[in-house]
Design a protein around this nucleic acid. Structure first.
Lengths: 199, 199
DNA sequence: GTCTATAGATCGATAGAC
DNA sequence: GTCTATCGATCTATAGAC
């Protein structure tokens, strides 16, 4: 029982890079074969459902990563302030250090009738709800938290658009730092009983 | 000399909708033919360069619209405060009322080696610079204006991602209103000599 | 589990009648 | 300026040898 030359995780990572670079429709099996070093036979052995199953595996992997590193802390694993910091650390690590992109965001903009629509909606909804819940735990009113959470998600997703448009992470990193400080300030203000001023 | 059944402008609009719904790679000439009601012969008569020229026409149309409705006011046609309001009005009209999407943003996320990379970069760079210049004219420091402009662009682009992910414009419109108020407040503060507090 | 060969459909693009 | 017919290439997916 020889070991696969490519671990499943590495394989999914390669797939992620291809779908990122070419888009779902633009990524051909020939492209995928080149990027993974596998022939079509091997690819279909690993993913009998073909390209759609490959993309689904990438999204599932992405969802797992977010569940562990982002949602879990926000949803109760950590005090609000620490959870927010963990979220921004994870986002920075994921998109800048590891060089990933947000395949959910990319698929959201393109492809009206993608088979992944439900997953996309669920991803952002869960992220939004987790962030709102965390801020509310930190003493922010629900309405205010709702606005801040939407703003934070939009800044991150839009930041990735600019990241790629400008071919550099400087603007994206500045946006992350800026929003991180803003949320910290809101939580600190609530903590010390000061009236909220932001938003 | 019979009139074309579809004006060039209407044709480009239809093309825009197809590329929006399917993405560039995902939009086949069969899709485009269905959406426009034209056969391939007619399409190639109008766009000898094929699909790439069709997409280029959509981007050119989009660029023209932005030049008129967004960049011109920001770049000097109006007082800063009025220009910012004009920008948000145009953005709301374009993305909500007219139901367009930001094809620049969609193409930016997907397709690494798209032939449109330079246009995409130029679009966002010009928008960013125009907004910075406008804020500086309003008395904001360049560093502060730079941050605010990046934040504004990211919120708009990310807002469109959420707009589509959530299948509703409510969150997007809230983001627009929120950022509009923030920029207004910054300009008003500069106007009255108050120290800036946002960002 | 990997490969090659290939099926069957669809792709972008062209030619030529009207 | 629109259509139909069709080309060659490429696509996803399968079959079967090793």
């Amino acid at each position: 029982m020889a070991r696969a030359r490519l671990e499943r995780g590495d394989l999914v990572r390669r797939l992620s890079e291809v779908f990122h670079a070419r888009g779902y429709a633009g990524a051909s099996l020939a492209d995928i074969g080149t990027a993974t070093g596998l022939g079509k036979g091997s690819l279909y052995h690993a993913f009998p459902g073909g390209k759609e199953e490959m993309a689904a595996a990438v999204l599932a992997d992405l969802a797992d990563r977010f569940a562990d590193q982002v949602f879990a802390p926000l949803e109760g694993g950590l005090p609000p302030l620490a959870a927010i910091e963990a979220m921004f650390d994870a986002v920075h690590r994921h998109f800048v250090t590891d060089g990933h992109i947000c395949l959910f965001g990319a698929l959201s903009l393109t492809s009206d009738r993608t088979p992944f629509r439900a997953r996309i909606t669920a991803h952002f909804r869960r992220w939004h709800q987790a962030l709102v819940a965390c801020l509310v735990r930190g003493g922010v009113t629900r309405a205010h938290a709702d606005g801040l959470a939407g703003e934070t998600l939009a800044l991150i997703e839009g930041g990735i658009v600019l990241y790629r448009a400008f071919a550099g992470s400087a603007a994206f990193e500045a946006l992350l730092a800026r929003q991180r400080a803003r949320l910290m300030a809101v939580l600190a203000a609530r903590d010390s009983g000061t009236a909220q001023r932001t938003g």
